[in-house]
Nucleic acid binder design. Structure first.
Lengths: 235, 235
DNA sequence: CGCAAGAGAGAGCACTGCTCTTGCAATCGG
DNA sequence: CCGATTGCAAGAGCAGTGCTCTCTCTTGCG
């Protein structure tokens, strides 16, 4: 049952390919990610890499999945502790933001324009869902302890989006009201919207540097969800 | 003073290059935009295109600027009329959303990950600023007629972001309070955040199709800004 | 031990961006 | 009006890319 040397070598080179690809991505971006460069970096010939990776896009999706895992771990780690859920939600946003600034190319790969034709939907979705799941967990905590402002004023939600929210709640096995899930979706897009704006240079000429408006927007998102009263004041 | 035939031919081929590039972009995306393909499309040899366009990135930035102009025109047209500013703001969001769905690759080029190294800052910024300027115009209208909920509860804004908002207000020659500009920034990122989420496939497995959550989020953004009471109910 | 499967090497095809040189045509100055 | 200058297009070519094919050598299993 112990792995043969060949198998060991295989997973080892596979790992080296992924590591090199990750490095290429971090340094030069997804557009410059080249299988030949990875091969050069590893001291092998380009055709040999195809024994491990079916195509360039294949490597890219592997890196995407790894990125989602990375981010999810950061998110899970950032929300440990006993602070109020609202504070932990803001901490989660800040952690995502920090990760994005430290790994801008990875972030762009995950949340920027899809690179090839479209996102590969395979195992990507489950890994991608981990990070929002952390946020929903916080909301659920706040709701169960009665800390969530469920009746905060909000625009009316149409029947279609209510149904989607209901189905999502069922799929997540969550007892949260649909309105809360809907508000969460709106707030969640806000969090990533402001991070993307900052990283992709949309704040040039206005709110620059963007970290202050990001901090404010994270609190606004928490407010939108209903974490009112627990939001830490800005530094 | 009349343009010589040579000059006419020059601007003509320049236009044809841009048109072909726009088409390439719309059909196959920015990654597949190829100067050689443009040359083939126009029946000329690739080196000849370099008489008109310095590089591939050069053509790309030209298309970016054109995209910003396109979007700005859509935005300006969508906000004509005498409806309440809040309603016109939502109409603006919907118009942006429609444009994005009709031109997903252009939208990705403008608001997705920056393609080459970084966004060319030259004349891009002024064109990019036109669309948010439309929104700010609406806010100003609402404010001047006292329709804006200036005292709506909001998270505290730190001194840094207040200063940025003050400078932005001065640059825009706007009399709006800083808090309103800050709230606008947070709401604006929300609008583009939800559109990007939808177009880039982040709603797969949750709020799919995304148009309903987009509609709701646009209203939430309007609510965040302070257009309360004027927001049209969902269909 | 022998033979099939795995792994790397190399050549090669079609494509890309971009540069350089060459030849032709239009424009302008005298 | 004619020669010189300038602008434009074409072609070849370089370096790089993704990907496929064949060939060779090693590994490991029966």
């Amino acid at each position: 049952m112990s792995p043969t040397p060949r198998e060991r070598a295989r997973v080892d080179t596979m790992e080296r390919i992924l590591t090199s690809g990750r490095q290429q991505l971090a340094e030069h971006g997804a557009a410059a990610l080249s299988l030949r460069a990875v091969a050069r970096d590893l001291g092998m010939v380009s055709s040999a890499v195809y024994r491990y990776v079916a195509s360039r896009d294949d490597l890219l999706t592997a890196l995407i999945i790894g990125g989602y895992r990375d981010l999810a771990e950061v998110a899970e780690e950032a929300t440990t502790g006993r602070a109020a859920p609202g504070r932990r939600f803001v901490a989660l946003c800040e952690a995502i933001y920090s990760w994005a600034r430290e790994h801008p190319h990875q972030y762009a790969l995950l949340f920027g324009s899809p690179v090839p034709g479209y996102r590969a939907p395979g195992g990507t979705v489950t890994d991608a869902a981990r990070t929002p799941a952390v946020a929903i967990q916080l909301i659920e905590e706040a709701w169960q302890s009665g800390e969530l402002a469920v009746d905060a004023p909000m625009p009316p939600a149409g029947p279609a989006v209510r149904r989607q929210a209901k189905e999502l709640g069922a799929a997540l096995d969550s007892a949260l009201p649909e309105t809360v899930l809907i508000r969460f979706a709106a707030a969640w897009t806000q969090v990533f919207g402001v991070i993307s704006f900052d990283l992709f240079g949309q704040f040039v000429g206005s709110f620059e540097p963007g970290d202050h408006i990001c901090t404010f927007t994270f609190r606004t998102a928490a407010h939108t969800i209903g974490f009112s009263g627990q939001i830490p004041s800005a530094r």
